[in-house]
Design a protein around this nucleic acid. Sequence first.
RNA 1: GCGCCAGUAGCUCAGUCGGACAGAGCGUCGGACUACGAAUCCGAAGGCCGGGGGUUCAAGUCCUCCCUGGCGCACCA
Length: 567
Amino acid sequence: MNGEVVTMHLVEKIRKGLCESLEEAVKKSIASGELPPVEIPDFYIEVPREKQHGDFAVNLAMMLAKPARNSPRKIAEILVDNLNTGTIPVESVEIAGPGFINFYINPLWVLEGIPAVLTEGENYGRVNLGKNKKAQVEFVSANPTGLLHMGNARGAALGDSLASILDFAGYEVQREYYINDAGKQIENFGTSLETRYFQQLGWNVDMPEDGYHGDDIIDTVKLFLDKYGDKYASAPEKDRRDALIEFALHEKKNAISNALSQFRVKYDVWFSEQSLHDEGKVAAVVEQLKERGCTYVQDGALWFRAADFGLEKDEVLLRQNGIPTYFTADAAYHMNKFQRGFNTVINIWGADHHGHVARMKSVISALGYDSEALQVVIMQLVRLYRGGEMVRMSKRTGQFITLEELVEEVGTDAARYFFIMRSADSHLDFDLDLAKSQTNENPVYYIQYAHARICSILRQPGVTEVKEKAEQVDISSLLYREAELALARRLVDFPEEISLAAGQMSPHRVARYLHEVAGLLHSFYNAYRVITSDSDLSAARVKLVKAARIVLQNGLNILGINAPEKM
RNA sequence: GCGCCAGUAGCUCAGUCGGACAGAGCGUCGGACUACGAAUCCGAAGGCCGGGGGUUCAAGUCCUCCCUGGCGCACCA
């Protein structure tokens, strides 16, 4: 939970200051007649890729070119003449290229951000983008009829990290798992369990073609036999199946929950689909849609007029036999989410469900809610590689790696990093050998090593006195070398990186950012010693690496990856 | 056929509201350990951003038409 007071961070402060100064400059220029009366366009202040283009650059003059009917460079000159940057330590301003205004800030400015890192500690990086609005992230939600696979694992890593990012960004976040414990697949599950039950009792029965063929349910049935023996063999079919289903669902849910907790994923809520049916919520959503005139009957089924909401075709709500479809239950589920007061509802879905997004949004609109409040992150599928060969994942051939096996084989840290380092909408090639390898080919250790390295420095003999001294030294008079400032520069970006990752719902941004911070730390480390004979300098550098450690720690924590003190 | 995602260095991928000379990791080649951890660092080579057309001061990014790969288009979930 984010209960801390979040202050404005350095980069944000400078951006805001420059922005206001520029707006003032436009107003002054208009007042003096140098510019015609124009509205201030929606310009932005960017950090140039090239260092030689300054610390911040502004495209305002180019955007004014057309409305002010003048050349961008001329407008830039006028603006610069009328510019007063006030308290911001601007060293120089230049007009460059097609009309950019580039700002050069005193190179030591970044050091002003370091004390905040140290005092905020584990809260450094928190921002108030969410303004305590309630957000829910629903992810994995795999059928409780089997074990979790690589695709689910990707969803778990993405969903959990995204939830942590949103929490850091100032949302009140809840993690939820939707248990599909109702409907036809559960009936099918019951039949499959019954078949395995009979087989275990030595009867000659065949598994239905569309049954659950996985070996895991054989184990489940064996557990059932341990508990109840053959007492259900002669029971009425319904009783037998119900008993098997209830037992198996409970067992599977626990297995899934355990695997996820090994993967460091913990849910706030496990939501049962069946409960929606039991409590009449599914029937209620059908009634609401009827009342709103969004339904009609055809061929004995009840349809939702999805086409009225821009979709290609309508959707069945109640089948000919009167049983609601999955879509109807899901509509009820989403309505329930909004009724629970969430302002933002995020679902992490596999690419094979993307067709469901528009349907869900349409029914949300039909029910009178804002469909924009539903955000769906679609993740592309995972391809598994082992020994340079693609491993075809299929339950039938047994080429199926479960989340538990993945954790066992490559470990949670590496697995999570590999899932998070790519954007969700890119196919993921998961190289098991690479994830396992403890070499420099493996990017996970690069970041963890940076953290361990800092810890190692802070463990050095004599560092205690340096740390005490660090309370007093003024780093801005001691740190000025390129590698020092480059590291500090990136550290003060952390809050903004959190905002961006939250806004774009992109955990991979955090992974890449941390990799960069680790790189800057390593470069600094190789260029200069932290502990030197100069105690003031040592103290200042201890402060810098401590700040780096905080950023690495917080970032890794968000991604659910350990920050080891030794490796 | 229609829709969604992807196509960027040898490989795997970033690229913010359209901005300046297109970035990283790995791999390749050449260097750096008698002081804090070499799982590291420094340097080099490597590009028709899938292709054509368009929009504009400016396009990897926006529009359009193609090509390739993945995934959808059920009274399944």
